[in-house]
Structures are given as C-alpha cells and as structure tokens.
Design a protein around this nucleic acid. Sequence first.
DNA 1: CTGTATCCGGAAAGATACTG
DNA 2: CAGTATCTTTCCGGATACAG
Lengths: 140, 140
Amino acid sequence: MSPTHTGVTAAPAALDPCGREEHPDCAIRDVLDRVGDKWSVLVVVELAGGPRRFRELQRAIDGISQRMLTLTVRRLERDGLVLRTVYPTVPAQVDYRLTETGASLTHLVRALADWSLTHRDAIAEARHRYDRAHPDHGIR
Amino acid sequence: MSPTHTGVTAAPAALDPCGREEHPDCAIRDVLDRVGDKWSVLVVVELAGGPRRFRELQRAIDGISQRMLTLTVRRLERDGLVLRTVYPTVPAQVDYRLTETGASLTHLVRALADWSLTHRDAIAEARHRYDRAHPDHGIR
DNA sequence: CTGTATCCGGAAAGATACTG
DNA sequence: CAGTATCTTTCCGGATACAG
C-alpha cells in the first residue's frame, strides 16, 4: 500500500495502450498522431457519407485551406485509410473514399462524438468554474 | 445518382459528430483538441492506474518536460477530467487522480488502443507501399 | 518536491498565386 | 477542377533558471 506501489498488487497497472509495454513506440500515439490532427477526423467523417471529390470536401469542411486538405488526404491515403481515384477527364476529376480500414475508423469517431456529446456540458461547466476560481490564469 | 447528389436521398449524410449540425463548434473537435495533443492521453492512461504525484507522472511518461506536464494536468484539471489535491506538507505534495468524467475517458482510450493494435500492421504496410510508389514525396 | 517565468527554435497552419 | 509552390505567421514544445 505504499504510495510508491512497490508491491506487485498494490497499484493497479495503468492501462496498457501499447502492444508490448516494453516497446517504446506506443500504439495509442500512433492513432493519435494520425487522427488527432486538426482536420483528419473531419475528412473521415465527411467521407463516411460516401465518396467525395476534392472540392466537395473543401466546401463541406469549412475553414480548411486547399493546402491543408491536400496534406490531410495525402496522409490518409498513405496510411491506407482513404482511396484516391483519378479520372482522366478534363478538367481533372478525383474522388476520395474510405477504404475498409478507414471505414472501421468511423466507429471510433462515433464513439468519440458520443463521449463528447455526453460530457460537453460537464466540461463546459468545469471550465467556467475553474476560470472563475482562477481568474487570470493563462491556460488554454 | 448524379455525382453531385442533388437528390434528397442520393447521398447518405455524413456522420454527424456534432450535436446540432447547425452549430459551428463541432463536438468532435472539442474532444480532439483536448485529447489529441501530445501528452494528455498518456497522462490519462497513467492515471487510470490510480492516483499519481507530479514526479511519478513525470517519471512514468518518459520524455515529458516539467512545463508540458504542468500545462497538461492544468488543462485536464480545468476541463474537470482530473482532480488535483494539494497536501500542505513541506515540501509540497500534490496528487492527481481521474474524476468520474476523466475515468470514462479510459474506455475511449482503450478503444483507440484496440483499433490501433488491430490495424497497425495494415497501416505500416500501406505506408511502405505508398513510399515505394511515391519515392520522393515529402509527406509526413 | 512542485511548480512558475522566460526565452527560443522549428514545425504546423494559413494565405495566396500559379499550373496542368 | 485539383492541385503545387511559396511566403508568412503562429504556436507548440524544449531548455533553463528560479521560487514557495
């Protein structure tokens, strides 16, 4: 029961989000680095509704720049989450759709959204309380 | 069936990860901004194993700086995911533990980890294929 | 021990112009 | 339409010093 949990069963092990805890590269970090950036999830969410063309994505996502959309879909393509199809028409036409792997991500996204919806009010309250208690704290 | 899905039922709506699609502030983005940063998840993961003191967290997380740990736990505290308790001993002693809300996050984290474990090989392969096909592409 | 306060370098993001 | 190429700005994260 020592606070430094020297006993084998004293402290429950933390979650092991990694395949092998010996391994330094954490599995969770992998997902997060892939999905945790500003735009990837929104692209996946949009593509969950079916194939979309470049401009459709850009219009749907609101606020994303051409550059960021390009980078985002490229990364998703590279990771095998999104399939990019070019039709040799003129002007060029490209569509993006989720692969099997990418589609399996929508479950996670939905779980994320559910959690967020469930707790957003509690979180907003907590923030207000904190901000009132610590007026000039520069936390973002 | 037109590619621009002008029909009402032509294209399945994308996932709605937001409470009200009218609302601009997306729920998912909220979670992601909170949880998608470099360290928050690792802190939550560690705290899932029980309360930890500042130094314990820092030692456990490996690579995190004092500054980043402070910022991370402060944000988590502000959002009501982590409870910070100060014991007026000398030297000061502080412990952090998950709140109810914070604990509920561990489910998501586990889901994230599971997904990652399941697909990491496929993703690694996809990357190698992509990188072989597009040798000098500067994608990260 | 548990932080706060600065400073700084580099990566990410945004804006914009241009091309096939 | 679907990008690429640049340039600029912003901000995250590390290092360090110091304080309660």
